[in-house]
Design a protein around this nucleic acid. Structure first.
Length: 722
DNA sequence: CCCCCCTCCATTTTT
DNA sequence: TGGAGGGGGG
């Protein structure tokens, strides 16, 4: 068997995991320990030994990219092309289920998926509809709340009544939003999961069918799974199925968006027969880098426990550069990269990682100046671009006339004299009648509820969409797309604009046509290619990276670096308040997640890791002085090599504190970095200053009270000897 | 209806 | 500091 030859290349715990016949298997896979390898080999093993038919396998991942990779690698391992395996994301699989069982779920057959941008628009609209225009409650907050509830498996009706007026309002919005989605026949991301779960709970025969079918269920990145996803898995697997989960509690960095690391611990409680296998041998990094990673993560509590090791070499020490400010930091990194390039290294092997996107600007400037090609991960994705979304909105409206989000988006794009006033009238009608905007528009025209000009414009819009629908009925998907672009006026609209941006917009619309041309409509269970394409687009917004194909250095946040590896990794901005970020460092759970993020960052490096921090950094226009990140201090000193320019003042991270000697505001006797005493808050250290004269204020980090901003004029601060 | 100016705000991101 | 969104003016 082909798979047996492959298995020889795996180490012993990896083989054990691949071949385990225990019903419940938990693989704790450290960074770079061959996690995906184990998962794909296990699937191939199950299929080739006949333990499972491809039909009986369901594998779940978190991202589309991971799903594609998994499928491809499994196919490469097998001597034949397996058919019938379900490999996909939670949302993708849920969508597939809803498509198959729309009737049982009382969904319209051609229901559409709402992405977060559309969702926010709908939330905004719902809020105006039910008359909530409280400035203290932003639509974003309401959207966050709705998603949080759905992630926890709660519908509006299930949310507990609360005496808190804020909660009551949010609940009201959630309820109205649910109704709006229902009217429009749209489903958001959380709804996909919620409905898929309800499908199991409310339709035992359907559940039984899938339970019979999927005897082997495998889950990747288990530490990122949220409540509803775990619940869905548990019901599906019931008493009979084999469930393999692979994850790393130390790499859980998405707690803030609902992921529950606790599920890893919960798993072996829920299934007491669970076999736990640890993958600790690392094939990626030098021993030095692994020691640093182990030392940092060791500061977290409640870990399941793992220690990475390697048979490889010690490698270079970790460089720590103490920059004077963020510009100096960027300059140094560019210089180091330049040197590596001169030594013949490839730019593709290098990455600069940072905590927040705002840091990228200074880095970019330095790279441009040094003429180093780079690419930034994290911009807009293809299907998120305005011009592309506009075309898609026309297509969505053709597919489903009740899609309010789509209609709102394009009713006046390009401008056709349907202004805010008119749209508001249509909304009011829709609200009164409890119908979709489309029907409201029809009513308004028919019953002459609008002023003449507006009425004509609305009627023209209705006719436009109906015409587009008729004209494209027999067309191939890509012809339809092209026709929509030409006939909707979008093409003309963007042609009239001038500048580089407008040209890019036109190109992107053409790119969309190419995408539809290449779209595979030959898949199983495709009823309408248009519906299928729209669903695919909502569920996978495309690559995040810039299209530049030259060899270039990668710039990205630590979060986006998860799952990647580079021989040379630079982590910039290793400062308290930035990393760990000040928004997360007060709570132990927040701080521990930051630490895991640091662990993720360190373990991206294969050959050489460089950390840098700036003693002074301009943030939001203010000069701030942060101490070097505690994470640097958590790395054993012998692993580090401190680099510091002769001209730089200060005593370095090892002894804490730096030599700031700038008078903040004359007359107060307060300097940056100075220890001060406050009558209520006690002792603290001055971190930043802003304003002058009567407006002068300082940011002080107190030992017990955290960080506070104080007006010098009022705060009774006294300077202490340091 | 569009454009400009002012104000406000400021992790991390997938589906 | 800079980007986004809202409001007001042309």
């Amino acid at each position: 068997m082909q798979i047996l030859e492959q298995l020889v290349q795996l180490n012993s715990p990896q083989q054990q995991a691949v071949k385990s016949d225990r019903q419940h298997l938990l693989v704790l896979a450290g960074a770079g320990s061959g996690k995906t390898r184990v998962l794909t080999h296990r699937i191939a093993w199950l299929v080739e030994t006949g333990l499972a038919s491809p039909n009986g396998i369901l594998a779940v991942t978190f991202t589309n990219k991971a799903a594609r990779e998994m499928r491809q690698r499994v196919e490469e391992l097998l001597p034949f092309n397996p058919r019938g395996m379900w490999i996909g994301t939670f949302h993708g699989l849920a969508h597939r289920l809803l498509k198959a069982h729309w009737k049982a779920l009382k969904l319209p057959e051609g229901f559409q998926v709402l992405d977060s941008d559309d969702q926010l628009r709908l939330v905004k609209r719902v809020m105006t509809d039910i008359g909530i225009n409280d400035e203290t409650l932003q639509p974003k907050t309401a959207q966050w709340y709705i998603n949080e509830q759905k992630d926890e498996g709660r519908r509006a009706a299930h949310v507990m009544e609360s005496s808190d007026p804020f909660d009551t309002t949010l609940r009201k919005i959630y309820l109205a939003y649910e109704q709006a989605c229902e009217r429009s026949g749209v489903v958001d991301f959380g709804e996909l999961l919620l409905r898929a779960h309800e499908l199991w709970l409310n339709h035992p025969p359907i559940l039984e069918h899938y339970q019979q079918r999927f005897r082997y269920v495998l889950v990747d990145e288990f530490q990122d799974i949220n409540t509803i996803q775990y619940a869905w898995l548990r019901v599906l697997c019931g008493q009979q199925s084999h469930l393999t989960v692979v994850g790393d509690d130390d790499q859980s960095i998405y707690g803030w968006r609902g992921a529950k690391v606790e599920n890893i611990q919960q798993f072996s409680k829920d299934y007491p027969d669970t076999e736990i296998i640890r993958l600790e041998q690392n094939y990626r990094s030098t021993a030095t880098i692994l020691k640093a990673a182990n030392a940092v993560i060791d500061n977290n509590s409640g870990r399941l426990g793992k220690e990475l090791w390697t048979t490889g070499e010690e490698g270079d020490p970790i460089d720590v550069y103490a920059a004077f400010n963020e510009i100096d930091e960027a300059r140094y990194l560019a210089e180091q990269i330049e040197q590596l390039l001169e030594q013949g290294e490839n730019a593709l092997d290098m990455a600069i990682l940072y905590r927040s996107n705002a840091q990228s600007r200074v880095l970019e400037e330095a790279l441009i100046q040094a003429r180093i090609p780079y690419r930034i991960y994290g911009g807009l994705r293809f299907y998120e671009r305005q011009e592309v979304k506009n075309v898609l909105a026309y297509m969505r409206l053709i597919a489903n006339r009740f899609d309010d989000a789509a209609m709102e988006r394009i009713i006046n794009v390009p401008t056709r004299a349907i202004g805010g006033k008119t749209v508001e009238t249509l909304r009011a009608i829709a609200r009164e009648q409890g119908c979709a905007l489309w029907q409201a528009a029809g009513l308004a025209v028919h019953n002459k509820l609008l002023p003449g000009r507006a009425s004509n414009a609305v009627q023209a819009f209705i006719e436009l969409i109906d015409e587009l629908n008729q004209e494209t009925a027999e067309m191939e998907l890509h012809e339809l797309t092209q026709h929509v672009i030409d006939a909707s006026g979008l093409k003309e609209h963007h042609q009239k604009e001038k500048g580089e941006k407008a040209r890019a917009r036109l190109e992107n619309m053409q790119e969309l046509v190419s995408a539809t041309r290449n779209f595979n409509t030959e898949q199983e269970d495709v009823v309408s290619p248009l519906d299928a394409f729209l669903a695919e687009v909502s569920l996978d917004a495309g690559e995040r990276q810039a299209d530049d194909s030259k060899d270039s250095v990668s710039l990205m946040t630590l979060h986006s670096a998860k799952g990647l590896e580079f021989p040379y990794v630079f982590i910039a901005g290793m400062e308290e308040s930035l990393f760990p970020h000040k928004m997360s460092m007060d709570e132990p759970t927040g701080l521990e997640e930051e630490r895991r993020l640091c662990y993720v960052g360190i373990t991206r490096a294969m050959r050489k890791l460089t950390l840098s921090y700036a003693e002074s950094r301009r943030m939001f226009g203010n000069e701030t002085f942060n101490r070097p990140s505690r994470f640097i201090r958590e790395i054993p000193a012998p692993l580090l090599k401190e680099i510091r320019l002769k001209s730089t003042l200060g005593s370095g991270f090892s002894s804490g504190g730096s030599g700031f000697k700038e008078e903040v505001a004359s007359g107060y006797g307060i300097q940056l970095g100075q220890r001060v005493m406050h009558p209520f808050f006690g002792e603290g250290i001055v971190l930043a200053a802003s304003g002058n004269g009567a407006n002068a204020s300082v940011t002080v980090e107190f030992e017990s009270e955290g960080t506070k901003e104080l007006m010098l004029q009022y705060a009774k601060l006294s300077a202490l000897e340091s």
